[in-house]
Structure formats: C-alpha cells, structure tokens
Design a binder for these strands. Structure first.
Lengths: 337, 337
DNA sequence: ATGAAAGCGCTAACAC
DNA sequence: GTGTTAGCGCTTTCAT
C-alpha cells in the first residue's frame, strides 16, 4: 500500500541508500551485479522516485502553470490542448487554472502557484487585467525568477516571451479578399473593442479599406460590449438594415452566427446578398448553416509554440525574449462568395 | 531573486528555524513580540512555504489529477470547469491530462502521476479502455492508495466513487414527452453505441417506446460509429427519408445538427414536420437554427460533485463508495413541438 | 564497489 | 519562550 522508497530497497538488499540511488541511476560506481538486481527489483515492484523529493532536491518541478480566462471557449481549449501535448512530450505536466476574466482571481492563482509548485507560466490575461492595465503581478513573478510566456492577450509593457495571432493582417487580408470578390460595403462587427486584439482587428480592417481604395465609413462599424450573445441578433438587425452592407467581418463566431440569422430574417440570402466572415476557431463555423467562412486562428499551434518556448527557456536554451506571430488562414466555406 | 526560506528569516532575526516555523504557524509557544515581527517580515517579503517541502513532509500534495478523453468537447470542458472551481475553493489545484481516447496514453498518464504528484484522480476513461474493458491500471492505482473518482464513462467492475448522468431516464422521459406532444414515429440516432452511456440512452429510448405503448421498430434506430461528423448528414438523409419519422432523439449535438440539415434539405419543416432533440451541453444547441431542444447534461455540476467527493474522501470524510446520478433536464427550444 | 553524511525546506517531538 | 534534532525521499560529495 505505502509507496516503495529507496530506503525499502536498501533494507531489502542490505546495502546503503546511496548504493540504491546510484544503482537506479546506472552509476558507473556500482557493480553490474548489484545494479542489475536492484533495477530488476525496482521494476518488478513498480518503484517510482518520489516527485516531491526530486523537486525539492532539484529545485525544479517539471510542471507548467497555465492560466486561462476560460475553458468554455473553443480557442482556449485548443491552446490548452497544444500546451498539454507539447509539455507531455517534453516531460512536463501542467497545472491549469481559470481566471474567469477576473484580475483578483488571476492574482490569487499566481500567488498560489508561486511557491515552487511550477517552474513557469503560460497565460492569457483576464479582460479585467488588460482593461485596467494592472500588470505588476506579472512583473513581480518574472523578477522572482519565474518565467512567463503570454499568448493572445499579451501585455506590451511586460518583457517576456509572447505569442500572438496576426490579427491585423488577418483582418486586412480579409478586406482585400472581399473587395476582390466584388464587395464594396464591408462592415465590421466587434465584440472585443476593449481588448488589444480587438483593436488590432479593427485597425487591420480599416487599413484594408484604405488599401483597396474604399472610403472608410464609421457607420459600417459596430462595437458590441458587455452584452450577452443572446442580444446580438437584435442589435445587429437594425445595423445591417440601415447600412445595406454586402458583407461583414466579425471578431468572433457568435456574432457571425447572429449576423447570419439577422440577415436571413431580413430576407437576405447568404452569401448571395451578403457575405459573412468571422475570426474563429471552430466549432460553430463548421456546424452553422451556411457553413461559415472563417479567419482561422490556429489555437493548437499557438499552445504548442508557447510550451516549446517556455520549456526552452526553462532549460536555458533561450536568451533574448521572442515575440512569435502566428498567421491566420482564410478558410473559405459557404457564407461568403 | 531566490525564494525566501525559513532559514533566511531565522538568520535575519538571529533565532532558530523552528522558532520561525512556529511563529509563522502562530504557535502558542512563541512570544507575541517575536511572532509579530517575524510574521510582519514574512508578509513584507512575500514569504511562501515551499510547496514541495510541505508535500514531502505531509505526504499530501493538495493536488488532483484529472484525466479527460479530450478538452475539445464542451461537455468535458464544463466538467473540467466544475472540478477546477470546486478544487480551488477547497485549496486544491489540478493537474490535467488528455488521454485522447487512447488506453496507452491513459496508462502513461496514470503512471506519470502516481509518484506523489497528486493525491487522487478524477477521470472519465478513454473509449479504447472502455471497449477493451482493460481496467487493471485503475485497480492497481486504487490498491496503491490513490483514490479515483470516475465520471460519465465509468467502469462498473471497479469499486470506487462514481458520478454518472441519468442517461436512461433522460432518454425515456424524452420519448414520453414526444409522445405526449403527438409524435408517433420516434427515431433514435446514436453515435455512442459502443459506449455504456450510449447503450443506456438506447435502452431508455426503447423502454420509453414500450411505456407509451408504441411498437419498437428497429428500423427507426441508427448507429453511426467511427465516422467523422462531416459524413453524418449523408448517412442520415436516407434514414430519415425511408422511415418518414416525425421526431428523432440523438445522442449528441453534431448528429442533431446534421439531422436538422438533412431534414430541411428533404423539405421538412422543423419542428412542424419533425422534432429533433439531442443529448447536449451546449454550444451548438444555442446557436443552431432552429435552436435545439436538448436533454441537458449539467457537466459543470458533474465536475463539482466529482471534486467534492474526491476531496471528502481524501480528507477521510467518506467511508462507503458513492454512486451519484445526475438528472438530465429537458430544455425546450425551437427544434421540437 | 560501497557507505556515510549533508542538504533541499519544512514540521514537530522533545529538550532546555 | 526558544533551540535541537530527526525525518519526509532523494542526490551527491567525500570517505573508505
């Protein structure tokens, strides 16, 4: 019942614990005979070195702390997946906590884990943190020798490794794509205008409009904030109606679904009368009717990249801080022409 | 940079480490004066007792191992959420690993964490494990003194705490509901017929059909297995056409979405000509057109319950093994009449 | 080739 | 009221 320790093995063979330790670690100091019998016994009895003893000794836990704003969002779930996969491959485990978009919770989590529980953090900060630009907890963590890798929602004021989506060009390229396929009244629906990524997407949209030579019309842009997705449709319906748009880009899937529903109710056909393209990672896009054309964000790759960078840093394979930009892909489905 | 330890504090005040330890733990043995100055200093310098040292000493890590088949599924993400929330409230953290429906991976994860990394497991086994009925790794873990709480996909052969959905009655009640609202040709679409939960849902359906006094017709049941969701629609279209069903129950959201699409293409109106009801947790149901009536599964509650039970067990508040059944709720939306 | 001992950071039983 | 010591499980340096 109680775990087998090095001490038990030592007693069993009437040797010292250091002999056992060395034998198990295949030290040249130990005779083949002893090594063999000890290793055999250890294997048969399913010996495993105690994790906490090792961590204490090595001052390294081989575990990564992940802080996510939520798990109930396909993007973050995908990022988690990428981190977990890469971490396991490289012999690390992950402790995952959810901030629920709350600064206090985020702080609490960081404090809770900054006691030798983890070697480093991978995180995307909470909305509250970003909006209040309250970054001192990150700074302190780093100063205490715990590296942080930020992804998606990153703090430019903090010096650390960062992985971001190419939101700007994702939006810009989409505008160009829509223009080339004949659209001239391109709208922009944002539910993220209070976040940096939302602003980047907007700026990319605006730049795109300029690039193709269309006039920028503020009326074609709507920011929906602090609103439940259930209200999106009723907010978007008049917006679409008034502006007679022939296409819209949305910063997320829910808004795109609501836009399509509103448009269909207004008698539009999609994509004939209106194209809808959303920043997305997935699930709704593939199941909506019509299936949604998306600016795809590669959450899993983002997670893999974040884990690789953090582990490389922990293993001293990195010097300067990196800022990796993950390109988006325009995935053409049936909601755009 | 390097973490403050009890030793550093002892040196600072020229006292012994045990004095510091006692002072920090507010022992009655220590004078108020020393306690105060030491506690103050500790607080100011952000002292935190080393996690690994504590775990080693107490033989308890206050961390829970979670093994999920996937995170890219709203149900499991919800369960995770419930576990993480409850765990944190009770002072536990969670290490989360993904089995990807693979037995080998599941085994590997269990072995990796069974070295004092965690105090107990909460898991839902992989499909492969369930299909091959390969449960010895669970048995051994429990025998080694590491408690397991299983949820959703549970092994009846293993004696441990279990939380399951009331799949049987969820299906049965839905059949009765459909019958009462005038449906007579009720179909059943399963994508989980190789899992126990899928069988329970089917048995509930069958029992329901008997209960309301309809003839059980095998033709009205279709099992889709090892097939990508993209193919669902083309598989379901002839099935719906041939049987002229007036309603179907599906074991999951994707199949329900595909059914609706197939039905609409066949010229059916939903719910006028056909009602669709799915076992579900969410996301697609609320965004589909029409919005989906669901047999809702309460993933978050399941997670909270699992965490509560595991922690109670770890803290010796439990004796006999419990088997908690979580009721489903029929959430009426627009895909059924 | 093997063992003794120190130390990772902490607690607690037992001195003083 | 404060200090000494042993021990949690392990590695590693330094004897032997």
């Amino acid at each position: 019942m109680n775990k087998l320790t090095i001490k038990d093995i030592a007693k069993k063979f009437n040797v010292s614990i250091s002999t056992v330790s060395k034998a198990l670690n295949d030290s040249y100091e130990i005779s083949d005979a002893t090594k063999e019998k000890i290793q055999k016994y250890a294997k048969e009895n399913n010996y495993k070195p105690n994790f906490n003893a090792l961590s204490l000794k090595n001052r390294s836990t081989k575990t990564i702390g992940i802080i996510l704003p939520t798990m109930l969002n396909y993007f973050f779930a995908q990022v988690f997946n990428g981190i977990e996969k890469t971490a396991l491959e490289r012999g690390y485990k992950v402790i995952t906590c959810i901030s629920n978009e709350s600064y206090d919770k985020e702080l609490e989590i960081i404090e809770m884990l900054s006691n030798g529980s983890i070697d480093g953090f991978i995180l995307s900060m909470s909305k509250e943190t970003e909006i209040n630009a309250n970054f001192s907890h990150f700074q302190e963590t780093i100063e205490n020798g715990i590296p942080i890798v930020m992804f998606d929602r990153v703090a430019s004021a903090i010096e650390c490794d960062k992985i971001i989506t190419d939101d700007f060009n994702g939006a810009l390229n989409t505008v160009e794509h829509l223009y080339k396929s004949g659209h001239r009244k391109i709208g922009f629906v944002s539910t993220l205008s209070n976040l940096h990524i939302g602003q980047q997407r907007f700026l990319g949209y605006k730049k795109g409009i300029e690039t193709v030579g269309l006039p920028f019309n503020e009326e074609y842009v709507i920011n929906i904030i602090d609103t439940d997705y259930k209200k999106y449709e009723e907010i978007l319906s008049p917006f679409l109606k008034k502006n007679k748009l022939d296409s819209i880009i949305t910063t997320g899937e829910s808004a795109a679904v609501a836009s399509m529903k509103a448009a269909l109710k207004l008698g539009y056909q999609i994509p004939k009368d209106m194209s809808v393209i959303a920043f997305s990672n997935g699930i709704l896009a593939r199941h909506s009717s019509p299936k949604m054309t998306t600016i795809s964000q590669h959450g899993e790759l983002m997670g893999e990249t974040a884990a690789t960078i953090l582990i490389d840093r922990l293993e001293n394979k990195l010097t300067d801080f990196t800022k990796k930009v993950i390109k988006t892909d325009l995935v053409i489905r049936d909601s755009s022409k």
